[in-house]
Design a protein around this nucleic acid. Structure first.
Lengths: 185, 185
DNA sequence: ACCTGAACACCGTTCAAGT
DNA sequence: ACCTGAACACCGTTCAAGT
């Protein structure tokens, strides 16, 4: 579907996303559409043509983040030790989120993120992540009632620590406590 | 300092807080000052006279929530079993937060909550809470490196699950996982 | 087809006038 | 002293005019 876009429109769309990612990372969450438009060198209307809503733009940024999650999960699946694979899945995912204000905003910003828009990416991630967790459960490396369904919840909690923690690295402590809680019975 | 308020002003202040608490609980986070003023039966200006900022109003609601936390901690301190005291501290606190959109908004709403305004209440809570945790550590009931400093972080994580979790009770699972993680090495 | 930016809407906040 | 609400400011969003 992106093939039908005119060449200049496609370039503009790309410029907007790059500008948005950069500004969110640098300025934090309170970046205005007008700033993004200016930074991308387009008019406000152009931003709205491509992303009907500010949330839609953020959703788009989240989508690419999810694709990275999938890569992380696929790589972690290669790790031999089942417990380490799980720990790596958590740790690398958290590392990816750190400093991505767009993603954090999507989760923390409350106002409905368009999760419908990224079901596909989420499913692609769920595959390897589920396999990693189930393997660890079967190996007795983590508590038997743990499942992939718990993962988003816990990551969300860790992300909230990134967001609100006083220092920068407090979330690693939070992650430590979570991982300790995964040990079997 | 509240003694110097004129009687009608004191009544208005109280009406505003009651209205705010009720509306936040019922409508969620996107309640407007004008609605609060209307529901309290005062003018907008009166709300601003008492609470220079919307955040200040929310901070006030949070302050009273913290006082309840302190009561919970003092009660939990009476529990004989050290591990159970810790579990109760977490569970009761989380229960208190549930359904308090004002509190959740204060934590999740990002935009700087005036924590300076509630240092005193926080300290009053830290006393018994610290004692509960240190007692459990000394008894070998929880991991030795756990401290009160970890508490707000973990509660914040659980609160984020209340906020974003699909169902209503998902956060209890999160709490379970956290408590499991507290067990000693 | 797509771009632009002036104009609109919404909501937090202020302040001149009232009691 | 305190109250009131019209007016202002800010920012997300729309839409008529332009290419």
């Amino acid at each position: 579907m992106e093939k039908t876009l005119r060449a200049d429109a496609r370039r503009n769309r790309e410029k907007i996303m790059v500008a948005a990612r950069e500004l969110f990372a640098r300025e934090g969450e309170d970046v205005q559409i007008e700033q993004i438009a200016a930074h991308a060198g387009v008019g406000i209307g152009t931003v709205y043509r491509h992303f009907p809503t500010k949330q839609d733009l953020v959703t788009e940024l989240v989508r690419s983040r999810f694709q990275q999650f999938t890569e992380i999960a696929l790589a972690a699946e290669e790790i031999e030790d089942p417990a380490e694979a799980v720990a790596t899945l958590f740790t690398e995912s958290a590392n990816a989120v750190e400093g991505d204000a767009g993603f954090q905003m999507a989760i923390m910003g409350v106002e409905d993120l368009e999760w419908e828009g990224i079901e596909e990416e989420k499913a692609a991630f769920a595959g390897p992540a589920t396999r990693i967790i189930e393997r660890a459960v079967k190996a007795g490396a983590i508590r038997p009632d743990f499942s992939f369904d718990d993962f988003p919840m816990l990551m969300c909690g860790i992300t909230s620590t990134m967001y609100f923690g006083p220092g920068g690295g407090e979330w690693r402590r939070h992650l430590d406590l979570i991982l300790a809680g995964l040990r079997p019975g």
